[in-house]
Design a protein around this nucleic acid. Structure first.
Length: 649
DNA sequence: CGATACTGCTTACCT
DNA sequence: ACAGGTAAGCAGTATCGC
């Protein structure tokens, strides 16, 4: 395999990980793994100072080092719930609770200061955030790279749920921390195991940096080349920074003017995509067509940019008016029919860049430069969203809302074209149409041709489902194509549901859609096993990811806040629990498997499977009675759609 | 009084 | 420190029928 470009930059580099005492912050251990395989562990066996000196000496050996959660700490200075910026008086106060998140270099800095020895770390503070660096040397906090939204979505397809080293490693490398232990267990280990534990973390960081032939770091380097930002800086910044400097440069080069519209930065939501009402049912032979990169395309077609929308020069030019039907402005927050126009004299900075990036991406694909094309994809796909982000220096919700509005217009026109050709549209979301029983392959290519001619939109045939179960609710369907079952949106794949429900749901779907067998016996068995209490509690464990620190929740009564508080979990962590009966245990949840409330699990299982059974014509009312569960009312927006092709069961 | 409907908050998902 | 649209679950509260 070709050695990626980023390896030339990094040269010989080291991954490290430190262990420290949670309350005193006394350094306990440090491990170092370099990219050539050399491994070292230092323990605090007789003196912390000796350990600190070893750490410093080791770090100074390399011009590049990488860590996990290693260079940024957040001080959550909450004293009795009121945040006051955490001034020194508070820290001196004995009652002050520093609920802070520490990083490796921060602890190293702090311990060197406390022990009164030379410090090689430089600390800079910005509000509640402290950033640590080693002057003269480069460092990458890999956590910040894997934490990026666009890395998770574009590269890893949401493979990891939390951003902890253990979770990311398990998802990508298929193995996690030493014996699955956490930092709290460290001092309980034998000396030998402490070494292994510490070393494992550095090994994982090193492996993640190399994962998939340096895929992520190489893409970050490519973004650094495209934007001109330092590689190190790209690793710790995001889309708003990248698009920001791209536009800054264009202004400096005289390629575009400065923004002339200003907006309140009060994050008012603007109108987004069009989602069609699904026609609930079971279908055979459905084609899904998909408008290729809709938002970048409409941005280019309609010249949408911060320097073209409501420009100074075309205010009275009737040709500049946005010529869309009134209905497309309905519900819009920032644009209206007679109050917005688009520059006719100049090509906007955003479409200009998008065109260059698109062209460049094609070239790089041909050259086999995976990293560069990935970097360009990230920039192209993330370009529209930044205009709707209040912290973006070129924030312009009019641009964002015009993009979605032209998107809705395009999908609407696509429907018109499809209908005229005799297609039966059963669903569609943002840029896609689900066409049932397409008249023929020829009509399909006619559809594509007309979309190209009338809308200048490329339509791809994304899927051809032999069987499709379409829910009455949006964003839920199950497709079967070439022996593969795609479960989209359903509870059977949602991460906060218990394994048992997910497994039973998936089994039932496979039985119906793939194996053409009667799913009821297996469902009956699942219900019976639940009732008899014979299900492994592990399979009934539910988990939620905390979006906040427990004390920060607006709703202090919500499950996440209550459970999080009870178990001392922090933002970003998973809390696990069982559903329990509030009348018997006083709480609707419990950590104790003996408190499991079976009827809740039965209901949850039923809620997951009942609609699919209904669509495939199983007697749901009868079954609900048999299983002793409530039938649930669902909205029905069938528009009198007549079910066709009854299941072959 | 208890069941039911509605609301707000939250997570997780889709494009 | 890219976006909005959507379903579903929980907890609390208003509302309805008895």
């Amino acid at each position: 395999m070709k050695l990626p470009k980023v390896c030339q930059i990094l040269g010989e580099y080291v991954a490290f990980d430190f262990e420290w005492d949670n309350t005193t912050h006394i350094m306990l251990a440090a491990s170092f793994v370099n990219n050539l395989g050399s491994k070292k562990v230092y323990l605090n066996s007789h003196s912390e100072i000796a350990l600190l000196e070893n750490i410093k000496a080791e770090l100074l050996e390399y011009s590049w080092s990488i860590g996990w959660n290693s260079n940024t700490s957040f001080e959550n200075n909450n004293n009795g719930g009121t945040s006051n910026g955490g001034n020194l008086n508070d820290i001196a106060n004995d009652n002050f609770i520093a609920d802070d998140v520490q990083c490796d270099l921060g602890v190293l800095y702090e311990r060197c200061e406390t022990n009164g020895i030379d410090n090689i770390i430089f600390k800079s503070q910005k509000g509640s955030r402290a950033y640590y660096s080693i002057p003269g040397l480069y460092h990458i906090d890999l956590y910040q790279v894997y934490n990026k939204q666009m890395v998770q979505n574009t590269i890893y397809n949401r493979a990891y749920r939390t951003h902890k080293l253990d979770d990311v490693s398990k998802a990508l490398l298929r193995h996690g921390k030493f014996k699955g232990l956490g930092g709290k267990d460290f001092l309980k280990l034998s000396i030998k195991d402490r070494k292994k534990y510490s070393l494992r973390d550095s090994e994982l960081v090193m492996e993640l940096s190399k994962h998939s032939n340096f895929e992520v770091l190489d893409a970050m380097l490519a973004i650094s080349e495209i934007t001109g930002l330092d590689f190190e800086r790209v690793c710790r910044t995001n889309l708003t920074t990248w698009w920001g400097v791209l536009f800054d440069q264009m202004i400096q080069n005289g390629e575009c003017p400065e923004p002339f519209n200003t907006f309140d930065r009060e994050s008012v939501k603007y109108k987004g995509a069009l989602v069609l009402d699904p026609k609930q049912g079971l279908y055979h032979n459905t084609v899904v067509v998909d408008a290729a990169s809709l938002y970048p395309t409409v941005s280019i077609h309609s010249n949408l940019s911060f320097d073209t929308v409501n420009c100074k020069c075309c205010k009275n030019n009737s040709r500049a008016k946005v010529k869309l039907n009134d209905t497309f402005f309905k519900g819009c927050k920032f644009i209206s029919k007679n109050k917005c126009w688009i520059c006719q004299k100049r090509e906007g900075a955003f479409p200009k860049k998008l065109k260059i990036f698109r062209h460049e991406r094609l070239q790089q694909k041909k050259l086999g430069n995976g990293a560069k094309q990935l970097a360009l994809k990230i920039l192209i796909n993330g370009g529209y969203g930044v205009f709707g982000h209040t912290k973006f220096s070129y924030y312009n919700p009019m641009v964002a809302e015009l993009v979605t509005t032209y998107g809705r217009y395009t999908l609407t026109k696509m429907q018109d074209i499809a209908k005229k050709l005799g297609f039966h549209i059963i669903y569609g979301d943002t840029d896609s149409l689900f066409l049932n029983n397409p008249p023929s392959k020829i009509t399909l290519s006619k559809f594509q041709k007309l979309c190209k001619e009338k809308l200048d939109i490329e339509n791809e045939e994304k899927n051809t489902y032999n069987t499709l179960i379409l829910s009455a609710g949006k964003k839920h369907y199950i497709g079967y194509e070439n022996g593969l079952v795609a479960i989209v949106g359903y509870e059977g794949k949602k991460n906060d549901r218990c394994e048992f429900v997910k497994e039973t749901f998936n089994g039932l779907i496979n039985s119906i859609i793939k194996n053409n067998t009667n799913p009821i016996p297996a469902l009956e068995k699942a219900m019976y096993t639940l009732e008899s209490g014979k299900v492994d509690p592990k399979l009934l464990k539910k988990s939620i990811r905390l979006g906040q620190n427990p004390k920060d929740y607006k709703s202090q009564t919500c499950q996440a806040a209550k459970i999080g508080r009870a178990v001392g979990a922090k933002k970003g962590e998973l809390v696990e629990y069982f559903d329990s009966n509030i009348k018997k245990t006083g709480r609707s949840w419990s950590k104790n498997y003996r408190h499991i409330d079976i009827s809740k699990y039965k209901q949850s299982l039923w809620n997951s499977v009942s609609e699919v059974l209904e669509i495939t014509k199983y007697p749901v009312n009868e079954l609900a009675e048999k299983f002793d569960v409530r039938t649930i009312k669902r909205k029905n927006n069938n528009d009198g759609h007549v079910m066709q092709n009854l299941p072959a069961v």
